[in-house]
Design a protein around this nucleic acid. Structure first.
Length: 568
RNA sequence: UGUCCCAUAGUGUAAUUGGCAACACGACAGAUUCUGACUCUGUUAUUUUAGGUUCAAGUCCUAAUGGGACAGCCA
């Protein structure tokens, strides 16, 4: 133990901080801010996914870490895309992840304040009503390399602008016929500063304000001001808003209001996953998956149904780190985080998913023995349970070979294997059908080899799982696998789309035979089927038939050896 | 012929802010094992390049190269 401590000592810098924490420390030290107040600002136009989880963990995590606050604010400035349905699911998902907001807000709550501030900018000559159409506005904006040119309406008087803007609000003009723009610099190398639009005329029913407004503020004109109103200190967002920061700052400065600091970080990207809204929408709409909460979806509700734990997702996000580099994290890290947590908390059970009959020829007719099985070898306090052992068992077809390579440690003809929490059995014969398939394995058992009280002294290399045929409970098992077969399905080669990379085996449904203990399993229960993986009880379960989802398989060293032909 | 941002093992992040490049995951090799799981051990790097500053550079400066973001009245 002291040796371990000595080894750990030089690496004692576990408190190393990422660049946002360092920025916060600096601002706190300099007195720029006196506390940490963050916010998570989703647009209620879709379901939260694993990428949002990173942002949620960051924002809520920072608030917790610095003893500050974190709000939930719905960025609902585009009535054509947003719905209350999403608001509810977003709140549910955040809570499931294990976070609670300090207070709940909607950007739409600030529409009136925003409007007043817009008038202020008009009066001060910092904003004007522009009659250019959307298309004309684009033409006037210039390009990435060429400066834009001033709108012919740029020099209207404050009085005229105010009148026009009020009439915009009053509904006197057609949708899209005019806009309110900030008067900044049409020659700015940063396109966001070329007189950005603040308001558009848009007759659409808003999910909260109904038909009260026919003009709606744009993101840039809303976000920073909302942050300011809530006294946010650190407005954390993703990298694509980096070029918007000058505008964020410009609005706050012109208005002379509380000025939060916007800090950008790289959003999460995971291999084999498609997180984009349109991609996910297409998967759902075209039936590649069964809905937003399909266990193969990268949505939080999908992962929830899949059986992932909030802890494992949080651990994963912490593990992934915060940086400004656009990186892709290997999906196995997420899967590993899930295994790591479930290994600690999921009770072990036995289940056979591809059964073949194993008959013990020297087992007393009709005898049933209750043996002890350990619930979690890593945690003795989890105790033991009784499992019914009999002369007629089911084992995994994969665990038997008539002819087997040298390193096959399971059951083979003429060989022996330990039945977990049971006896050692010796295979002496097999029964086959007309096609030559093995339909029954005949064994003898060693009465002195019972688990827990083995006096046989025998050492066998392999241990396999089993269930007693007459005691097993039949269940449905959904074997989920990755939805896509390639690292980056979002970057298809010529002439292909992400659809071409869908994994046809992302879902296999089989009938499983589980130990009787599992007949009592309840919705949401997570267990490890020994040697197979982690499974959760799905909501589709009924009174008389339980449905299990495979959360994630166990690491399969043997499978890898076989794939590489290293089985000796 | 723009502006901004980024570059450290295969992957992702560190490096006490200028002082012996570390951790995790993967991969590989081995140990252990009544789960081929878990656990444990070992291996895995001229810090993109070229200059410069310095006793000392992953860290500061300049340039190059490579990558990313931006031309919605989306967010």
């Amino acid at each position: 133990m002291s040796e371990q401590d000595a080894k750990r000592d030089p690496n004692e810098k576990r408190d190393s901080k990422h660049f946002i924490q360092q920025a916060i420390d600096a601002d706190l030290a300099s007195g720029r801010f006196s506390g940490v107040f963050t916010r998570f600002p989703p647009e209620p136009n879709g379901y939260l996914h694993i990428g949002h989880a990173k942002s949620i963990c960051l924002n809520f995590g920072l608030a917790k870490e610095y003893d500050g606050k974190c709000n939930l604010r719905f960025d609902d400035t585009n009535p054509t895309k947003e719905e209350t349905e999403y608001v509810d699911s977003i709140m549910e998902d955040i809570r499931w992840l294990g976070f609670e907001w300090d207070s709940l807000h909607y950007a739409s709550d600030y529409f009136e304040q925003l409007y007043e501030w817009a008038e202020k900018l008009i009066v001060e000559g910092d904003a004007y009503v522009c009659d250019l159409t959307a298309e004309e506005t684009r033409e006037y904006r210039g390009t990435l390399t060429a400066p834009g040119k001033n709108s012919p309406y740029r020099d209207r008087t404050a009085k005229e602008n105010l009148d026009l803007f009020r009439r915009m609000r009053a509904g006197e003009f057609q949708d899209g016929s005019r806009s309110l723009r900030a008067k900044i610099d049409m020659a700015s190398p940063n396109i966001n500063m070329r007189d950005p639009v603040m308001y558009r005329i848009l007759r659409a029913t808003h999910h909260r304000t109904g038909d009260k407004w026919c003009i709606y503020p744009t993101y840039d004109w809303t976000h920073g001001q909302s942050d300011s109103l809530e006294q946010i200190t650190f407005s954390i967002c993703t990298l694509e808003f980096e070029n918007h920061r000058p505008l964020y700052d410009w609005y706050c400065q012109k208005l002379g209001i509380h000025h939060p600091r916007q800090i950008e970080f790289a959003k999460l990207k995971l291999s084999t996953l498609l997180i984009g809204k349109r991609h996910m929408l297409r998967m759902v709409k075209e039936g590649f998956v069964k809905g937003w909460d399909d266990p193969r979806m990268p949505t939080l509700c999908g992962y929830r149904r899949r059986g992932y734990t909030p802890e494992s997702i949080r651990n994963f996000c912490a593990d992934a780190g915060i940086a400004k580099f656009n990186s892709t994290i290997d999906i196995v890290r997420l899967e590993n985080a899930v295994r790591e947590h479930l290994n600690a908390v999921a009770p072990r059970r036995m289940a056979v998913l591809d059964p073949v009959k194993l008959t013990i020829t020297n087992w007393p007719e009709g005898k049933v023995e209750m043996t002890d099985a350990v619930n979690n070898p890593g945690d003795p306090s989890e105790g033991k349970r009784k499992v019914a052992f009999s002369g007629s068992l089911l084992i995994e077809r994969e665990d038997f070979r008539e002819e087997a390579p040298r390193k096959f440690f399971r059951l083979k003809k003429g060989g022996a294997v330990r039945l977990r929490a049971g006896y050692i059995v010796d295979c002496h014969d097999v029964v086959k059908d007309k096609e030559g398939n093995v339909i029954e394995i005949l064994c003898t058992y060693d009465p002195d080899s019972r688990s827990g009280s083995d006096t046989s002294g025998r050492k066998v290399k392999g241990t396999i799982h089993w269930v007693s045929a007459e005691h097993a409970v039949e269940v449905d098992v959904r074997l989920y696998d990755r939805l896509f077969t390639v690292e980056n399905p979002g970057d298809p080669e010529e002439g292909k789309t992400f659809v071409d990379y869908l994994n046809p085996e992302s879902l296999k449904v089989v009938t499983g035979y589980v130990e009787s203990e599992l007949g009592k399993a309840k919705l949401g229960d997570r267990v490890q089927f020994e040697r197979l993986g982690y499974f959760v009880v799905d909501p589709d379960s009924t009174e008389d038939r339980i449905v299990f989802n495979r959360i994630v398989s166990l690491r399969d060293t043997w499978g890898k050896m076989e794939a590489k032909g290293k089985t000796g």
